[in-house]
Structures are given as C-alpha cells and as structure tokens.
C-alpha cells in the first residue's frame, strides 16, 4: 500500500535578507512516511523544527531539497515542486491543517467558519451546516456561541472552532500543530475520540502534541525530529 504521505531528503532553511543575509538551517534530510489509518507524532524539544516540517508538508514553507509526496486518488503530488493550483486542490480534497491559533475573517460567525471548510471540501451548503453543528456539539461549544464571531471567545473556545474547522473537510491526511494545547480534560478527550474515529475510517494523521498523555493515546509512532537536525548544529 502506498503511504498517504512520504517525505524524503527534505532540507529546510531560512535565508534572512534583512539580517545581513543570515542563513538559518532548520532541518535536513527529513525522511518518513505516514500510512492510511495511522497517527504519526513528531517529537523533540521546541525549536527542533517540528512546526516547520508540518508547514513544509502543507505547502506553507518552501523547501530547499527533497520531495514531499502526497497521494491523491491515483496520482501522487510532490508538494515541494507542485504548482500553486495543484497544492490548492490538494488542500481542498486531501490534506487539512489545524494550526495553534484560529485565523479567520473578522465578524464571521463560528458556525459559518466551520461550515465553509466543509463546503470547500465539496459538501452541499445544508450538509455543511449539519456537519459543522455536529462537530461543534461534540467539541462542547455552547450553541449560544455558534452565531457569534470567535474574536471574543476564550482561547479554548477559539481552539475548538479551529479544530472543528480542521475536521470539517474530512480530509484523508490531517496535520495537527498542538491542537489540544489550550483545552481542558473533557475537550482533550473529545479530540482524542475524533482522531480515533477518523483513523478507523482510514484517515492519516501527522501531529505535534506536547501533552504526553494525549500523545501516548493517539500516536501509533513517534518520530524524534532531532535526528533531522542540521549537520552544522549536530557538529557543534
């Protein structure tokens, strides 16, 4: 079986033109794969480049070398070299992303934010709203908040809207960057359940979880990213 995601030989560095052209390597020769129905967690201390790897896979960061192959039905798309339109299509139909923070257009109600994600993945407007309601219910967001824009919500409430939005597309590959960081025990539990359910349906997960309890319950494998540390730093 072809993996859903296959990363090989990826180098990521930043070149800071505004700071004397400083070259800042982040990770080198990143190499791993994620199968359908599997949850892979990236481990390692902060600053080791975990988030950068997630962003590179999502197409958000440019990589200097290597390939990031994502399976889309019968085709394979290399995110490292694909045209923007191909990545946009991939994000619509194959891979989703839950960031640490909710970033949305101001003044749009929470329910609409979640429903729009489902619609982008191709669901009809009515079905999108039903799926959005279901997710917000499972994540214990009080219904009185659904019609309000999340700007005034607490950190935990905002994050639950963010998670619901990430799950609304029912992507085959979901990238999670510390989704449970600001959640209480009940809601962490809800997220763990959601992940387990989607895994059972064949979805693949790649994530960062600092909470060791959550990590141990969702992870099938943990990859220590310090093994991708840049050569220069390893020598030091």
């Amino acid at each position: 079986m072809q993996p859903v995601l296959s990363v090989s030989g990826v180098d990521k560095a930043f070149h800071l033109h505004l700071h004397g052209g400083k070259h800042l390597p982040v990770v080198e020769k990143v190499d791993f794969a994620v199968q359908a129905g599997e949850c892979v967690v990236l481990g390692g201390p902060s600053g080791a480049g975990k988030s950068s790897i997630l962003k590179a896979i999502y197409g958000n960061y440019t990589v200097q070398a290597g390939s990031i192959l994502v399976r889309r039905d019968d085709a394979i798309v290399d995110v490292a070299t694909a045209e923007p339109a191909a990545i946009v299509a991939l994000r619509r139909h194959v891979m989703g992303y839950v960031s640490q923070f909710l970033r949305v257009i101001p003044r749009v109600p929470a329910l609409d934010i979640v429903a729009e994600a489902a619609r982008e993945a191709g669901l009809a407007p009515d079905a999108s709203r039903r799926r959005a309601s279901k997710l917000l219910t499972r994540l214990n967001l009080p219904e009185r908040l659904w019609a309000l824009p999340p700007a005034t919500f607490s950190g935990g409430e905002q994050q639950r809207v963010n998670i619901a939005r990430g799950f609304a597309g029912e992507h085959r590959l979901l990238i999670l960057d510390e989704p449970t960081a600001s959640l209480d025990a009940i809601n962490r539990e809800a997220v763990i359940e959601l992940i387990a359910e989607r895994k059972a349906q064949g979805a693949a997960f790649l994530g960062i979880f600092h909470d060791i309890d959550v990590r141990d319950r969702v992870a099938d494998r943990i990859i220590d990213v310090t093994r991708f540390a840049p050569h220069s730093e390893r020598a030091a």
């Binding site: 070149h15 958000n60 960061y61 440019t62 923007p84 946009v88």
Partner: peptide, 21 residues
Amino acid sequence: AGLTDRVLDDPQEAYTQLLVS
C-alpha cells in the same frame, strides 16, 4: 510568485521579506 500563504509566511526575496515584515 507562488502560493499566497507560502509567499507571505516564507518569503524568499529580500523585498518580499521587507514587505511582509
């Protein structure tokens, strides 16, 4: 040129880095 969030989050050219920052 490129994917919007990639250009804005990981700009490659000096001028784009200046613009974004």
